[in-house]
C-alpha cells in the first residue's frame, strides 16, 4: 500500500476513531517522521497506531508529549531553553531536533568528522544498513520480491542498530 501523500511504500498506518467513525491514514517513513513518529533504524516495521478521540476532542490515551526517558526533559522545556538534558534527548526529540540542527548547522544533517575507536565498526554497519534499506524499498516498489527477500535476509544478519562492536 502506498503513502497517502506520495508514491513511497507506506510503513505507518494511523487509524483515528472519532465519535465512532474510523479514518485511516497511510504514511511512508519520511511523512511519518514529519508527523513525529519515530521509526527505529532497522527492519522496516509496520506500525498500526490507533487513536481514540472523545466527543470533546481530547484523546483518552494522552496525546504523546515527547519526554526524554533518559533525563525527563520534555520537548516543550527544550524549546524554551534551547539546551538539551542528556545524550538520549537526541533520539527522543529526533525529528524536531533534526530540523533545528539543520537550520543551525547550515543544512548539515549528519556528522562527518572523527569517530571514536569503539564506534568505528558500528558506523560502517549503519552505513551498510541504510543502503540495504534503500535498496529493499526500491525492490518492493518495483515488485522484485525475490531481490527484496534477499536484501531483507542480509539486513537480518547485520543485527539491530546502535550496538557498539566488541573489540
Amino acid at each position: 500500500m502506498n503513502c497517502d501523500l506520495c508514491d513511497n511504500i507506506a510503513l505507518v498506518h494511523e487509524t483515528v476513531i472519532k465519535n465512532g467513525v474510523n479514518r485511516t491514514v497511510h504514511l511512508c517513513a519520511a511523512h511519518a517522521a514529519e508527523r513525529g513518529y519515530e521509526l527505529p533504524l532497522g527492519l522496516p516495521q509496520v506500525q498500526i497506531i490507533t487513536k481514540v478521540e472523545t466527543t470533546a476532542g481530547r484523546s483518552d490515551a494522552a496525546k504523546p508529549t515527547r519526554v526524554c526517558t533518559g533525563c525527563g526533559l520534555s520537548l516543550s522545556e527544550y524549546r524554551k531553553s534551547g539546551v538539551l538534558g542528556c545524550e538520549h534527548c537526541y533520539d527522543a526529540f529526533g525529528s524536531f531536533l533534526a530540523k533545528v540542527i539543520e537550520r543551525a548547522q547550515a543544512g548539515a544533517t549528519k556528522h562527518s568528522g572523527r569517530v571514536p575507536d569503539d564506534h568505528r565498526g558500528a558506523a560502517a554497519r549503519t552505513a551498510r544498513r541504510e543502503s540495504l534499506l534503500t535498496a529493499l524499498q526500491a525492490a518492493v516498489k518495483s515488485e522484485q520480491y525475490e531481490e527484496a527477500a534477499r536484501l531483507r535476509d542480509e539486513l537480518h544478519t547485520l543485527g539491530p542498530s546502535s550496538t557498539p562492536e566488541s573489540p
Binding site: G82, V83, L84, E87, Y90, D91, L97, V100, I101, A104, Q105, K110, H111, G113, V115, P116, H119, A122, A123, T126, S161, S162
Partner: peptide, 13 residues
C-alpha cells in the same frame, strides 16, 4: 557519541 550526530553536546549548535 551518536552515529548520526557525532559528539553530543548540551547545545545542538
Amino acid at each position: 557519541y551518536h552515529e548520526r550526530w557525532g559528539f553530543l553536546t548540551a547545545c545542538p549548535t
